[in-house]
Amino acid sequence: MPEGHSVHRIARQFARRFVGRAVRVSSPQGRFAEGAAMLDGRTMTDAKAVGKQMFLDFEDGLWLRVHLGIYGAWDFAGALELDAPTASAGGRMGQTNQRGTVVGEHEDSLASIGAPRRARLRMAEQEKVTETVETWPPEPVGQVRVRLLTDETVADLRGPTACEVLDDAGVRAVLDRLGPDPQLDDGPEAEAKFVERLTKSAKAVGLQLMDQSVVAGIGNVYRAEILFRARMNPHTPARTISAEQARDLWADWSRLLEIGVTTGQMMTMDGLDEAAHRRALASRADRHWVYKREGLPCRVCGTHIVLEEMGNRKLYWCPQCQA
């Protein structure tokens, strides 16, 4: 499932290529025909992500809310901007099984990797520039729930968990259920809200960090990595965590999220030399402390990383470093 950094990057693409433009909205699949008719022809006025959810604001107080869930993805084509330093192979922007090679040290636009102006970019857990668009607009491929089209850019949505038109009150009701997102507010009030919501429960901290009403945007990868970086046992009752420890978790999540939004990668290891950093950008196997490393020796102590299930999701941790 796409974690917070991916959804913020998708929102950036909308902000750059759709906001301020009239948008033709359709539902090639037909399942969103009524909602598409409500938005068709309106100007998009804002695009923002809150945790794993995205909100596209149209004139006259209508919003398109999208939660990609496990299978959702956006395919963009046309005039695009790519601000990630990584070209991933065979994936979707938003997902975490990123593989591929680093093209140069940074990529600031599609042109920087030799892509034509009308390229196709898939965004879900991964980002991938795929084939050239030969005709305009390109024909929808697969079961496209929603198509958003301007004169220069098209965005096709497939397989979302949630896709609905809301008014301002509906958006506010959704936002009120979400925890803080440090990309939107990393000030003392957001930090205090996180600390209060995290530590009020007797649930395990590994469950609390995945609760979107506690903190918005953390998923399986960041949960495992943040807890390892804190040397914290994921089974620790959250209410036993001190305020200082909770603030440290918030600060580390803020740092990792910023790295993810900037680079497009869930880079959770630090202190790497230049060669190791490039390997980490190119391969997830060199990017994380514990995630997807079950049975392998801990990078710090050598104890084998444990895989178990917590809250119906896979949990990776070191029983020595996080004892």
Rank of each mutant, 00 (worst) to 15 (best):
M93H: 08
G302V: 15
I70N: 13
R313M: 03
A47Q: 04
D211C: 00
A192D: 15
W317E: 01
C321G: 14
G51S: 00
G260E: 07
V290N: 08
T199C: 05
M123F: 02
R16H: 07
W63K: 03
Y222C: 10
L110A: 07
P297I: 00
V141H: 15
R229I: 12
E34Y: 12
H106E: 15
V154D: 01
P28Q: 03
V103R: 06
A47L: 04
A202M: 12
D60S: 14
E309L: 15
R16I: 04
K52N: 08
R284W: 13
L39A: 09
D168E: 15
A49Q: 02
P160R: 02
E127N: 09
D156Y: 03
G206P: 12
L68P: 10
D273L: 05
R197V: 07
G159R: 07
E34I: 14
V19N: 00
I218T: 01
V23T: 06
G61L: 05
I259S: 04
C318H: 04
Y316N: 09
R16K: 08
T262M: 06
Q13P: 14
M54W: 06
A246R: 00
L121W: 06
E191L: 13
M1H: 14
Q212L: 09
R313I: 08
L207V: 14
E59W: 10
R279H: 15
W136T: 06
L148D: 04
R293F: 00
T268Y: 06
D185N: 08
A89P: 07
D108Y: 00
N97Y: 06
K200P: 15
A87M: 13
R117H: 00
L307D: 06
W250G: 01
A275M: 09
P182W: 03
G260W: 01
R145A: 14
Q320C: 14
A77M: 03
R239T: 07
R92P: 02
T268M: 08
G30D: 04
G41P: 05
D286L: 11
